[in-house]
C-alpha cells in the first residue's frame, strides 16, 4: 500500500516537472466608467480591424513560463464604449460599408501596433505590467486621412491578494483605462476631429476611405499625429 502511494506521488511529481508552466488568461470585455466630459458634437464612423474581435498575445519568459492572454473582443468593446461616451453619435462600420454613404462627419480607424506585458519573474517585482500602443487614424468625409496618432498606454497591477491571472487581467484593464484617459484628454487636440463637423459635404463623394488591414498597420508608415493637416473648409 505504501509503495503504491509512493509510486503515485513520484508520478505526480514527474508530471509536474515535465509539464512545463503555461498560463492562459482570458480577458472579459472591460467596461470604463462614464467620463466627466462634454461630448464632441459630431457623428463619427468607427471601423475596427478584424483582430479587435479576437486578439491573443503570448510571452515566453526565459524559456521557463509561457504566458498567453486572450483579449477576445475586448478592444472592440472598449472602443465602442469609449467613442460612445466621447461623441454625439457613433456608427459602427463593417469593412464593406462605404463611409461616403453613412452620413458621418469623420471616420475613425483604430488599430493595435503593439501589446506587451511583463511578469513578476521578468520584472523582479510582485506585479504584472501591460503596455499597449494603439494607432488612431482619422479620415474626413471625403476619405482623406487627416490624422495618424499613436496612443501609448500602461497599466500595472500588484499580485498582492489576487492570483496571477487576475493580476494580469487587471493590468490589461488599467492599460485600457490609461489609453481611454489619454484619448479623452487629447484626441481632439491631436487629430482636430471636432473641426471636421464644419466641413461641407461635396455634391459627389469622390473617394472612399481606404480599409486599413492588419498588415498596413504593422508597417508603421506614418508615426506622427496631424501629418496631413485638414484642408480649409471648402
Amino acid at each position: 500500500m505504501t509503495a503504491k502511494i509512493r509510486n503515485a506521488l513520484t508520478s505526480l511529481l514527474l508530471a509536474a516537472i515535465t509539464a512545463g508552466c503555461a498560463s492562459n488568461v482570458t480577458l472579459p470585455p472591460p467596461t470604463i466608467p462614464v467620463p466627466l466630459m462634454e461630448k464632441i458634437p459630431i457623428t463619427v464612423g468607427l471601423r475596427m480591424p478584424k483582430n479587435f474581435y479576437s486578439f491573443v498575445h503570448q510571452e515566453e519568459t526565459y524559456g521557463r513560463d509561457e504566458w498567453s492572454i486572450d483579449l477576445g473582443n475586448s478592444n472592440a468593446a472598449f472602443f465602442t464604449q469609449l467613442f460612445g461616451f466621447m461623441f454625439n453619435d457613433v456608427k459602427l462600420l463593417k469593412v464593406a460599408d462605404d463611409p461616403a454613404l453613412m452620413n458621418i462627419d469623420a471616420l475613425v480607424e483604430p488599430s493595435i501596433d503593439a501589446f506587451e506585458f511583463s511578469t513578476p519573474s521578468q520584472s523582479r517585482a510582485d506585479a504584472f505590467a501591460v503596455w499597449v500602443r494603439y494607432r488612431i487614424k482619422v479620415f474626413d468625409r471625403d476619405g482623406n486621412q487627416v490624422a495618424n496618432w499613436p496612443v501609448s498606454a500602461y497599466g500595472k497591477s500588484s499580485t498582492e491578494g489576487i492570483n496571477d491571472s487576475e493580476s494580469l487581467q487587471r493590468a490589461a484593464v488599467l492599460a485600457m483605462r490609461d489609453a481611454a484617459a489619454l484619448m479623452i484628454m487629447k484626441l481632439d487636440a491631436e487629430t482636430g476631429i471636432s473641426a471636421l463637423a464644419a466641413r461641407e459635404s461635396p455634391a459627389v463623394m469622390p473617394a472612399v476611405a481606404p480599409v486599413t488591414t492588419d498588415d498596413e498597420s504593422d508597417t508603421g508608415i506614418q508615426t506622427t499625429a496631424m501629418e496631413d493637416e485638414p484642408d480649409d473648409a471648402s
Binding site: 470604463i32 466608467p33 462614464v34 467620463p35 466627466l36 488599467l174 483605462r177 490609461d178 481611454a180 484617459a181 489619454l182 479623452i184 484628454m185
Partner: peptide, 8 residues
Amino acid sequence: FPWFEPRT
C-alpha cells in the same frame, strides 16, 4: 473618471 487616473 478620467481625472484621477495614474496619468491624469
